[in-house]
């Protein structure tokens, strides 16, 4: 990617976020409430916010060291980004799963003990299960996910002669629908619907889990649905006939309590 392209892609991202912020009215005194600024301001658990001028805030976004890969190859990461975006696409409400860093979240989760199923029961034989008995496959989540990504590309090439990430959105939806219905060969006895279900679950988690896990970038997943994140009390709000929108607050705000 050239320098110009990089700049353009950053601008694109910002403009889609701006559109969202404009739509949702998430500004205070004309200053756009970016996540880092927002969480600092809200640390005192107040729902009203005061702010001071932060020069050049919008122009110099701080690099997020959490945005790096501990599991995927760059190509696997890009396929994941494309897939999560179709599960939870950008729309008039705001950014999609891609911009929310759901693929970073998934990378980190698959690298974690959970990706290796360490708290699952894995003893004994793996028989074919009835519908109501839950999955009985031995494959680990991390391996299931990688097999799923391979299969997404293989199936995309069979159907449309291109890798998944190169397809049109409608074609990608077609591919994912086939996966969700278990119609695609994945790996051994593993059903494509099992991969799809994992992808779907991880995408929703990546959109809505606390930002410390790497997704829900700048808490925009929460803002979109007016979810305030982690706050200590809602005694007044739950009694109010009107909806009270509170700025989201992450677990980081509980540090030092």
């Amino acid at each position: 990617m050239s320098e110009q392209e990089k700049k353009d892609s950053v601008l694109d991202k910002r403009s889609s976020r701006r559109t969202f912020i404009k739509n949702s009215g998430l500004t205070v005194g004309g200053v756009v409430l970016g996540g880092a600024l927002g969480s600092l301001l809200i640390k005192d658990d107040q729902s009203t916010i005061t702010t001071t001028e932060t020069p050049n805030h919008a122009a110099t976004p701080t690099a997020n060291p959490n945005v790096a890969l501990m599991f995927f190859t760059p190509n696997q990461y890009q396929v994941t980004q494309a897939a999560v975006e179709r599960i939870f696409p950008e729309d008039a409400n705001g950014p999609g799963a891609k911009e929310l860093n759901a693929a970073i979240y998934i990378d980190h989760q698959l690298a974690s003990p959970w990706g290796s199923n360490v708290k699952d029961y894995r003893l004994g034989a793996f028989y074919k299960a009835e519908e109501n008995q839950g999955a009985q496959t031995k494959i680990l989540r991390k391996d299931l996910f990688l097999a799923g990504l391979d299969s997404l590309n293989r199936y995309s090439n069979e159907q449309f002669e291109a890798d998944f990430k190169e397809l049109e959105a409608t074609q990608q939806d077609e591919v994912l629908l086939a996966f969700s219905e278990g119609k695609v060969e994945l790996y051994g006895k593993v059903s494509s619907s099992q991969f799809f279900s994992l992808l779907r679950t991880l995408t929703i988690e990546g959109v809505y889990a606390d930002p410390m896990y790497g997704g829900n970038n700048e808490m925009l997943g929460w803002s979109m649905r007016k979810y305030p994140g982690s706050r200590m009390q809602y005694v007044a709000e739950i009694q109010d006939e009107k909806f009270i929108e509170l700025k989201p607050q992450s677990l980081n705000s509980h540090m030092g309590h």
Binding site: V118, D120, Y121, R122, G124, E130, Q133
Partner: peptide, 20 residues
């Protein structure tokens, strides 16, 4: 990973572990 239950819906079925 240390202990779970197995489940079946009828007395004639084969119970399988609740793995997660």
């Amino acid at each position: 990973s240390k202990e779970t239950i197995t489940y079946r819906n009828t007395v004639s079925g084969k119970a399988l572990p609740m793995r997660h």
